[in-house]
């Protein structure tokens, strides 16, 4: 009797713990277990200041992927960002990738604005048109010190 109640308690505890670990890793950590299929695209930005690996990739406010890696292109001194985009999303080669901020102080994400080109991007292709992250501090200081029209 006593032994079995200990076993039951341990079982309940371990189950509870695993559910919590699962919640943390699957919901918060966003690990794909079954996962959609993705393909990769590269994009070069002048600045990705504030962007993090794992940040969202959105089209019209809908999440379609994630930032997979951020690196510096040693030759051109620009940021090389690898995105993964859901396989069902097809993009033309004139898509514009821009680094945006959610709210004034919010997280950075990448917004894809599809164009009208009939030529589709294949996995591994480079997005040519990009907009760098907005440097809010620089903007604010410009307003503050009146050098907007410089």
């Amino acid at each position: 009797m006593k032994q079995s109640s200990v076993e039951l308690g341990v079982g309940v505890f371990v189950l509870l713990g695993i559910i919590c670990v699962g919640y943390l890793t699957l919901r918060l950590g966003e690990i794909e277990v079954l996962g959609d299929k993705y393909y990769q695209l590269n994009a070069r930005f002048k600045s990705v200041s504030g962007l993090k690996v794992g940040a969202q990739v959105e089209i019209a406010g809908v999440q379609v992927g994630q930032v997979e890696s951020i690196a510096l292109d040693p030759k051109d001194q620009v940021a090389m960002v690898r995105l993964k985009v859901k396989a069902v999303i097809v993009l033309g080669d004139d898509v514009i990738a821009s680094v945006k901020t959610a709210g004034l102080l919010g997280d950075k994400y990448i917004l894809l604005s599809p164009g009208g080109s009939g030529k589709l991007l294949k996995p591994g292709d480079m997005i040519i048109e990009t907009e760098p992250a907005l440097d809010i501090e620089a903007l604010i200081s410009k307003y503050a010190f009146g050098k907007v029209n410089e």
């Binding site: 505890f13 371990v14 509870l16 713990g17 695993i18 919590c20 670990v21 919640y23 943390l24």
Partner: peptide, 12 residues
């Protein structure tokens, strides 16, 4: 075993 599980519980 217990510390990570309890930490996860605490977080959630």
């Amino acid at each position: 075993i217990c510390f990570p599980l309890l930490t996860a519980l605490f977080d959630v």
